[in-house]
Design a protein around this nucleic acid. Structure first.
Lengths: 199, 199
DNA sequence: GACGATTGCTACGAAGCCGAAGTAATCTGC
DNA sequence: GCAGATTACTTCGGCTTCGTAGCAATCGTC
């Protein structure tokens, strides 16, 4: 999406206008939103360029990557929807496409006939790995901030997200600890249903 | 888009997996991208909720707001495309919709028959003001970070964007200074064409 | 053990986004 | 003063997203 360098920073320019006309907190809040938006667009363009090389979209890649990370190589569609905050209809669409490409198979859940599991195929694993390697080298390792600044940025964004109730900051850490993080949750909150160990 | 609070932070969870399997810079880079993505989604959901109340999308609002800020209440479509980094086809679409709603009119450029100006109508100004007020109160003033933290976040994101060549960090400030920032640039880089002062 | 509420998934359709190709006007170099 | 490159905008078409409504299985309560 080749845009050329703009002559000035739109975020800063609009922040100054806001400062003249509205409350200062509104100005900084507006600036935060637009800065996040533009940072997202910037990185997203780079990410999408990589995705295109692998015939994926980022949404499909994200699901594939979580499947590849999963110890059992399978996730319930409902888990994907809740954890990655993708609307159910979109999950259906994503899995449809991944299934068309033979990267994933739908398998009925062994003990709950309502739920469907997505299982990654060997081909899916290969493509996930290739795409991840490409993303790492082409985008992630080239983000223009020193390691300590990345850390500070992550902390600030985590606070932003937590205060927006994106996740449960109280318990997040313990939950992540629990066995590679996903496993524990695939089974649902209460741990009811002893788990459908893959045979 | 009512998602409920997730039990753990997906960004942090995947960062840990990345750290085990890939280079550390890849892990932090990945975390930055996903944190930015999720922050964007979080804020975007709130912003869109406001937009819906005013029969706008954020893209249309953004254009309308820039028109409302402009001293001459008009901007060239090409300027909008370049500055706000919206693909030309999307600008056409946005202006079409705004024109349908009578918030904007298309006016031919007085001295360059290739370019079209979007001019905001009084109705457009009213709606822009109402939407901005709503956004400020409902979203921007409620972003969950203290004022100094917002400042630090903005600095880090500005560095990120500048290093991704989003804008010309060298000259941005001077350019913004030049008369309310936009005016100078509407006329094009060289300042050729003395400007089509509104009669 | 049965009924209503809940949960999981999908089908449909509206809306947005944007790449590519096309048209028209302008600029550039000779 | 004219041919070719450039710039501005639009049209078309494909793709993605996601709200809504629907169906089916399961759970919770009595």
């Amino acid at each position: 999406m080749g845009f050329r360098k703009a002559p000035f920073d739109v975020v800063e320019a609009s922040r100054r206008v806001w400062l003249e006309r509205w409350e200062p907190e509104a100005a900084s809040g507006m600036a935060v939103y637009t800065a996040v938006l533009r940072s997202y667009q910037l990185l997203n363009d780079q990410v999408n360029a990589v995705m295109r090389r692998h015939d994926l979209t980022f949404a499909r890649y994200e699901v594939l990557a979580w499947l590849a990370m999963d110890p059992e190589s399978s996730l319930a569609l409902s888990w994907i929807s809740k954890t990655l905050r993708i609307p159910p209809a979109t999950v259906t669409n994503i899995i449809d496409k991944l299934e068309d490409e033979k990267l994933v198979r739908r398998v009925p859940h062994p003990s709950d006939a309502r739920t469907t599991l997505a299982v990654i195929t060997p081909r899916g694993e290969r493509i996930a790995t290739a795409a991840t390697r490409d993303l790492n080298v082409t985008v992630y390792e080239c983000i223009g901030l020193s390691e300590p600044k990345r850390g500070r940025l992550l902390d600030l964004l985590a606070e932003l997200r937590a205060s927006g109730n994106e996740f449960d900051i109280e318990h997040s850490d313990e939950v992540i600890e629990e066995v590679g993080s996903r496993q524990a949750h695939k089974r649902g909150r209460g741990g009811r249903n002893g788990g459908f160990e893959v045979a």
